[in-house]
Design a protein around this nucleic acid. Structure first.
Lengths: 191, 191
DNA sequence: CCGATGGTAGACAGATCTGTCTGGTATTGT
DNA sequence: ACAATACCAGACAGATCTGTCTACCATCGG
């Protein structure tokens, strides 16, 4: 006799995993307040009690969702290139490509912040931590490049990144134009 | 005998006006989905029937809210300075100041877009129109400055603007640092 | 074999959301 | 003077939201 459906699902991934996957897709694509817990539960094929066992409240799920986004971005952001300048360029090339890809809907953190105004809210803290991490990455690369104004230049590059992400969501830019714009913008900022 | 309260309110502004004011404050400060029609009605001191007379649905109010934001920004964005370059700088100086002011909560359009994913939604169209207007302003100034790459440079400046606005909301930057950063960034982009 | 663990299904409560409707009042143009 | 217009107060319907609770099932370590 074959395994039950439940057993199969257990092997393929825990309920918590499925909930996080569903939340990632739905929250990012449609917004957080627009997606109810019931929708997440249905998409994840999970019982309500199980959901509230793993995430005591919806806000906990939102926090976990953003933390996972942060972890993922940190894992993917691996500068390539010989010099620090090339490495910075590689990071922004990836951003340019990403923001023109299908299904791009802006920055998960910026979008979430729009729905969580209170800077002291846990969700906002995850966002702030992620932004500090990214600023640190750029600052370290700039320092390695021997720049005395690494902090300010890093801030400028973060501004560039945020602007590119908004543009990718709202202006439907072409891939090729974006590639050129990114390289020119980074070059000018680093000039 | 003195005028009734109703008469006073009539003189001070129509119900529609009060609704738009309340919506502007609440939507911007707390987000759109987070603010119910009942809250807007209470804040505006307006009857529900009156509200739905002026705005057949909440989405209509959201559209009017953003349209008003757009009109206001267009009215305020008056470049000052002798040369086109100075005028561009003046526009960005104002942005830098604005994004460090009290109560700043990011760009009303970017924030609204986070809650309205569908690009064909009327709300998104208002946003797109506003962005095209701003890009046009910059493009015209750059053209007047005799630049051949006005369109692309304008796109880069829009990116800069969006990034500055995100920064103002999420990074709580100091006024002075922002002033310096803005001038340096604009200078480098126009270099 | 059996208890602990983690999962399923779904009813339920209470709040809140959008939108409608009734009925009354005040102002205004003619 | 009077009809039209705009507004007010608030009940109501129906949907949806978060979160709780009961009751049952399957797997696994000891």
């Amino acid at each position: 006799m074959s395994m039950t459906d439940t057993a199969v699902r257990r092997r393929q991934g825990s309920a918590r995993r499925r909930v996080l996957d569903a939340a990632g897709t739905l929250f990012y694509a449609e917004g957080i307040h627009a997606v109810g817990v019931d929708r997440v539960i249905a998409e994840a094929a999970v019982a309500k009690a199980t959901f509230y066992h793993h995430f005591p409240s919806k806000d906990d799920l939102v926090g976990a969702y953003l933390q996972e986004q942060s972890d993922q971005v940190r894992g993917v952001t691996l500068p390539t290139g010989d010099t620090p300048e090339e490495q910075i360029l590689s990071v922004f090339d990836a951003i340019g490509e990403y923001t023109c890809g299908p299904g791009f809907r802006g920055c998960a953190f910026v979008n979430a912040a729009a729905e969580y105004p209170d800077p002291r809210h846990p969700v906002r803290r995850v966002i702030a931590a992620h932004r500090e991490w990214f600023h640190g990455v750029l600052r370290d690369l700039l320092t390695a490049a021997g720049r005395p104004d690494a902090v300010r230049t890093a801030a400028m590059l973060v501004v560039l990144r945020d602007g590119l992400v908004v543009r990718g969501d709202l202006d439907h830019p072409a891939d090729s134009e974006t590639r050129a714009l990114v390289r020119e913008a980074v070059t000018r900022v680093l000039a």
